[in-house]
Every structure is written in C-alpha cells, then in structure tokens.
Design a protein around this nucleic acid. Structure first.
Lengths: 350, 350
DNA sequence: CTGTTAGCGCTTTCAT
DNA sequence: ATGAAAGCGCTAACAG
C-alpha cells in the first residue's frame, strides 16, 4: 500500500496525495476529500522510512535511562511517552543499568537509528563521554535529572531540598541524622543530595554520618547491620535521610528487621516521590520530584528546538520545583530516656 | 556521511562498503579492513531509514503495554528491551493507559512506523480489534499476559495459581476469603484470576465474595470502607486475595487505616510478584509471574519468526511457570473467639 | 571478488 | 492547484 496505489485509485498524482497528508490546505477541498476517502478505504499509511529518508527527520526521539525497575524512571518515561505521542513523535528507549559503557553504546545506536534528538540521563554529567559525542554529532539532546552548567538540563535542585529536609528533622528534635546513599562515585545526583545533607548538618551544627550501600543488592542487610550495631552507641541515628525512595523503603525494612519502629524509634525520609510511596504503611515521607513533568518538559524542549531548528544549549535548562511530601515515616525525636520513662511507662513494666 | 563518502575515500564502490557491513565474508580481507578503517575514521553509520526502505525491515519491534506506572509492565518492558537489544533490535513502546481506543491507535502508529513485529498487551484479547487488525495486516505479533486460543501468547496460568492460593488460605484456617479486583469487565486477566478464585472457593466449599474497586484511584478508600463495615459481621473476611500487587499494597494500607493488623487480623495476598513486594513490611505474599522472562520470551519468539520468515500462530504460545512467594502478609486464621480469649488474654484486659 | 544499475516510498522543486 | 521528475542512502541482482 504505497502512495502510488492511492494516487492511481484516486486518479491524481503521487505528489497530490503527499500534499493531502503534509499540506492539506494546498489541495482543493474536493480533491483532498476524495484522496482522504480513498486512502482511508485502502488503509494507506505513509511509510515512515521513506519519509525519513527523504526529509532527513525521523520524528523519533531516543531516550537513554538507567533502568525502568526504578519507578522514578518509569514515571519519567511515561511522561516522555505521553508528550512525545502528543507531539507526533515516537520514542526509542534504551536502558543502561547504570553502566557507563552502555550509555555510550545506547547513544550510538540511537544516532544510527536516526532519531531527531535524544533525552538522556547519565550517571555523571561531568564525566560522561556520551555528552561530548552528542555535541560533536550536533544531535539535539537534553539531560534529565542530571545538572550541568554546560548542557541543557531538565532537573531539580536536590541539594537545597535535602538541606531543608535536614533542617526539618533538626526542628523535630533529631540530633543524630544518618545519610544512606548508593555508591556516591557513580552518581552526580547522589553527590548533590549528599552535599545538601552536609550543608544542612553543618547549619544545624550536627555531625554528619554517611552510610554507603550497594544500591541494587544487599542494601537492606547492610543497613540492618549498621542500625543494629549503632543502637548501643550514644550517637545512634534517630533519623535517616535516604538518597532515594527505593533505599528508604529498604531502610524501613531494615529498621523493622532489627526491631526498630518507624517512625517511633527511627524516622526515615526518602527522595524521589515515587507513586508507591504514598501507598505504603507507614506512608513514605519524601522529597518529591516531578518525574512525569521532567519527562514532559524534556520532550517539549526538544520538539520546540526541532521545530525552530534552534540549537539547544545550557541556557535552555530548566529547574523544576521540588516539594516535601508529608508521610508517616517521620516523627519528632523521642526525648531523652528520663522523659521517655514518664511518657511511656507501660513499656517499662512490660 | 553516507556510504558514498566512505566508498570514495576508500577507493571502492558503494556496494563494497555495503558488503563490508552486511556480509563481511564476501569481501577480500585487505579491502574489508581498509573500508572498516575509513568508515571508523569518518564516523560513518549506515542510515537506518535508507536501509529499512530498501530491505523493508526496520529491525525495530513495537510494544504496546497498558502503563509503565505498574511495575509489572515496567519489568516486562525491561525484559523486552534487554532481549531486543541483544538481538540487534530497537523497541518503540506505546502505552494505552488501559484505554481501548489507545490500543488501536498505538498499533496503527507502530505499523506505520514500519516495525517488523509487535508485542502487545491488551485489556481483553477476545474483544480486541487490534488483534484482528494485526492479523489482517499480516504483521507478526505476540500477546503478553493475555491468553487466547487463537493468538500466539506468552502468558501464565493465573487461574490455576489463584485456585491453589485459595486452597493454601483454606488450609491456614481461613473461611471468609474475599477477592478484591479492579474493574473485571475491562481485563481478561482479572476475569481469569477471579475464575480461579471461584473454583478454589467452591473446592473448599466456601462462599465467594467479590469486591470490585476502581483500580487507579480511590481503591484504598473503598477497601477501607468495606473492611470497616464488614468487621461487625460474622462473615468478616480474614483473608483477602487481591487481583494484583498494587491492589494488595493498597489493601494492606486499607487494613491499617481501619485498625486491622496484617497478617494477624487480616491476611493479604497479591498477584504479580513485583520486585518491590519483597521490600515491604510486611513483605507481600504473592503469586509471582516472571515478567522479565515474559518480555524476553516474547522477543525471542518474534526474532525467531522474523529470522525464519515463519508466520507466528497460536501454536507458538508458551505458558510460563508461576510460583508463590511466601511473604509476611499471610498468616493462619485466628481461631474462634472463645479460643482467642485464651490465647490472647491480655487483649481483653487492655 | 567487485562494480554497475535499479529501485525501495516519499517529498519537493520546478513547470504548467 | 496539480503533475513530472529527481533523488534521499542504501541493498541486491546481475555482470564482469
């Protein structure tokens, strides 16, 4: 079913059929309708490959994300998919599983695929080879989640948000606030959140403490160990700031495993605001980033740039708002043991 | 950067360059290496659109799934992405948000895109127009999660699994087992799981009870209401079989909201086996479907069919194994109130 | 083993 | 407003 078939059937030239699809206004209404009717009857669909070859544009966006197993990125991709679809673009996603080599590989394949532009999330924007490559290939691209002064980014200010989170915990009476993070070296976002934590702790004149855990596997066990071991110490954490929601969920489980109640014995805060967090018990208190919106905005940026043939640069970066979602996993710090014995006498007798 | 540029630079014909990329063995090693060197130096990448137009194959697979917000499908897509990538295919995903019209729309776009084959999950395989369309378009496709005798499917036997789940609950002493499901009419999977439930209940000689809730929004509130209202009745459920994990998580929250402890007061079981279920507290007891594997297998099926140019049919369907994951959200039913007063005297005095 | 040639289906000047 | 014709970059006969 080619344009030729339609043109013959409708008794017009191929050019006219093409115009009906690409510039309907330039075709006399009567003819236009006839062509449309014939096309519909024949089930004709313009061949995208041929069109791409001819126009040198594929109307497809490449997407490179770490993984879809983390709901943050699944939500983001959902946003990307919706916005792209609305703008008449398809998407071609690749996941890197947080592997640097995969980032490069994915971008290459996407470029070869002839996508018009790329949406990319890398482990570390400062070190990524992908970005220099994209730039030299002159492919329009936008970073999501990553922040970097030399690239167009759609991101959030995680650092500041974590600083206020620490202030909030401090105000609740917490004096021993632990930060748990996945491997810091591999993620610029984790680094920024940690910076925010350090600043918050400094502002509150508290001693920072960091626990780095393997993100994917064994995180729960590691946290449980740590929590168990620290219980005997005077500086046992009463609150934990987790670098992301998945970690926070595991942290709550770790607390449970060692007999700590959340939030009575231990406050746990996350970062990301994945939808599921609200459904948990206790509901996760977390800093919410608008993942769907991040996806949408990144598409908008690219589509606009493509439409205007305007090159995208760092000046196009946008920082979206973050907000704190009050859940049930954070509470005021328990007061000192003396007061505690008054306020909870039954625990002593039992 | 076209094949022509490379051919000139290497002093060979375009055909030779093409051969170097598509059938390296047919080119004299010396020449081949020269071409490869030149191509690499020039950063040449074959243009996919041109290749697709010429060969009539895009090396891309279309994927239609309900949503990525449900981790089940995100996991599946991850499996699809990995397998596709390994086989040298890209994927072009679309989500339908459980809307029938979107199913059709997505398939159309994908077909127009010229994908070589499709992986599709529809609400109801028996009623879906998409499938008849795909069939008439002669596009190779495979259904995931859906089961239907007239289509190639990669799926699981949810019905039987739910039947055994009910048997398991029965064996634990439960006599009032509720099933909670999203809108049944819209999902053949929900229907099958419900059938399994009915069979299990019949086998145990118990009275089935179904609560249909809006899947996306307000499910928790609806369940909480129901649980609260039923507490005063003699047939108050002591166990709930949820049609999927997301519902189960909400059910646990609903239980919490009305003061029921899971699993002490109420056992909750899910279906899907999303990764997060294991991280929850209590860990979700659920029937695990191998979502990643479902994705992988569907790709394998298609890639094989494409390679052999063998048409795919219902006889290619595969049913993957399901297994029950023992979590912490299910416990033996509390015995009758008399016995209860003996085993938990402290609750009476408090 | 390599080159020549003829399109794949479409868009887009350039005529009319 | 419409048609004729050229060609996007590539591959696959077919010659040599």
């Amino acid at each position: 079913m080619t344009i030729r078939d339609v043109s013959k059937e409708a008794g017009v030239s191929a050019a006219t059929v093409s115009r009906v699809f690409n510039a309907p206004d330039t075709v006399r209404p009567e003819l236009r309708e006839r062509v449309q009717r014939v096309a519909a009857a024949l089930g004709y669909r313009p061949n995208v490959s041929a069109r791409s070859l001819r126009t040198q544009r594929s109307r497809a966006l490449g997407v490179v994300l770490p993984t879809l197993l983390n709901p943050v990125f699944a939500e983001c991709l959902q946003g990307i998919a919706q916005a792209a679809s609305a703008a008449g673009y398809s998407i071609v996603p690749f996941t890197t599983d947080y592997k640097l080599a995969h980032e490069d590989h994915a971008a290459n394949l996407l470029l070869a695929r002839g996508v018009d532009a790329l949406i990319v999330c890398v482990a570390n924007a400062a070190r990524s080879k992908v970005l220099t490559r994209l730039r030299s290939a002159k492919a329009p691209y936008v970073l999501v989640y990553n922040r970097h002064a030399r690239h167009p980014c759609v991101s959030v200010d995680g650092r500041t948000a974590v600083t206020s989170l620490v202030a909030r915990l401090h105000a609740l009476g917490h004096r021993h606030i632990l930060m748990v993070s996945g491997a810091m070296a591999s993620s610029d976002r984790a680094q920024q959140r940690h910076k925010g934590y350090l600043e918050g702790m400094a502002a509150a004149d508290l001693k920072p403490q960091l626990l780095e855990v393997p993100f994917m596997d064994g995180a729960t066990e590691r946290m449980a160990e740590f929590l168990a071991a620290s219980q005997v110490l005077p500086q046992a954490p009463t609150a934990v700031v987790c670098s992301n929601d998945l970690l926070a969920i595991r942290c709550m489980r770790a607390a449970h495993l060692v007999g700590l109640r959340v939030p009575e014995d231990l406050s746990v805060a996350g970062f990301d605001g994945i939808g599921l967090g609200e459904e948990l018990t206790p509901a996760l208190s977390t800093i919410v980033q608008p993942s769907t919106e991040i996806g949408r905005r990144s598409v908008e940026l690219l589509v606009q740039a493509l439409a205007g043939a305007v090159p995208l640069g760092p000046h196009n970066s946008v920082t979206l708002d973050l907000h704190f979602r009050e859940g049930e996993s954070i509470a005021a710090a328990r007061t000192t043991s003396l007061v505690c014995s008054y306020s909870q006498p039954q625990r002593i007798t039992s």
